[in-house]
Design a protein around this nucleic acid. Structure first.
Lengths: 193, 193
DNA sequence: CGAGGCCTTGACCGCGGTCAATGCCCGTGG
DNA sequence: CCACGGGCATTGACCGCGGTCAAGGCCTCG
């Protein structure tokens, strides 16, 4: 079950097999069915997840019931609500499986322990935060400088997986537009060919 | 010069005065005049800055010459282009002083050294990345769920400093709208009273 | 004193949201 | 096995937010 996480560590850090084995031992396998809610709005986040297989989203719901998606993770990615996790305060968003997924979960207690005692875990956490930083960075950039059509085209060239594996509704929720608008954007592209 | 950074460390971490003195010794005082460019688009970022006094922005310029502001830092804040810094690749944005500012700068070389050798620095970096994460998080949220007027009002209640210290042009660039729209939003609010 | 940048205001218009109708696919139960 | 219901996708009509372009006033700085 833990091979892909082990490989991820080997690829990104220099560490002994013993350290890797200990690192991985903090993570417990979990399965999530399609559409399963893994963290409720208002609930305190207790886990940090590595994704072996599948797809998971973090999102919130506005006054009109519209879903806005903050983050989507696929194979070899991570997901959690860091804010809720590190401060142990209620989350203001949901986490939910988009596809049936296999995950590795580390609990808050183990996370905190490993972070204070294990240098490999600290380095891992830094790497993860940096990757998230870059991701958030381009996300903010696309909102600042691109319109809806350009954002969609950007995803087509830079995050094709998202376009292919997310439903139109989810993709629209990620782009910050409505399902109807995304549908029109796609339709226009076909005409242009 | 370094008192505020020392205090920042004391407030956020448990560490000896000796450790703090060493930590702070990596940072060199720098002054920036109003509007001074501290990092050019295309240049490799060489410093990570702590702000003693003043205000600094990170921004990019689109095809039409419009400025979009990704991040603004005030006293006791940090600024850099982490992406460019950690990978030592050309930056795709500018960093520029909004007000005449006093800064503490740590070079990439010292940054890398301290990060690999000093646990206090590692903890400091994690804290900084986490704070940035939260900041980016709410930023993405406001783009996903709020219109321009609501984003402005959100800033009024949650980041009053930005509204007070930034020019309308800069504030508009941060909100992702034009100067003209911001002007109208403000005008409407007055009428409403 | 002149030049340039910032702010405001007006006129215009297009992108994208809203509401509604329709069709399609798929899971569930009679 | 088919009928039904619910969710997703598409399309049309309409309209308001916010961008664009332009003009004018004001302040700052050289």
């Amino acid at each position: 079950m833990t091979e892909s996480l082990e490989q991820f560590i080997r690829d990104n850090f220099t560490s002994t097999e013993k350290e890797i084995a200990e690192f991985v031992s903090y993570f417990k396998p979990v399965k999530a069915t399609k559409d399963e809610v893994m963290l409720e709005n208002g609930e305190v986040c207790r886990y940090f997840y590595f994704i072996i297989k599948g797809c998971v989203k973090a999102y919130f719901i506005d006054a009109k019931g519209q879903e806005s998606i903050r983050y989507v993770a696929f194979e070899n990615g991570f997901i959690s609500n860091i804010h809720s996790l590190i401060k142990q305060i209620p989350s203001s968003e949901f986490i939910r499986a988009v596809e049936a997924s296999e995950l590795l979960a580390i609990s808050y207690t183990d996370f905190k322990f490993a972070l204070s005692k294990r240098n490999l875990f600290k380095d891992f956490y830094i790497k993860m935060l940096e990757a998230t930083y870059l991701n958030n960075h381009w996300r903010i950039e696309t909102f600042l400088r691109l319109d809806a059509k350009q954002r969609y085209e950007y995803m087509l060239t830079n995050s094709k997986q998202m376009v292919q594996r997310l439903s139109n509704k989810n993709l629209a929720g990620f782009l910050g537009i409505t399902q109807e608008s995304l549908s029109r954007i796609k339709a226009k592209k076909v005409v242009k060919k």
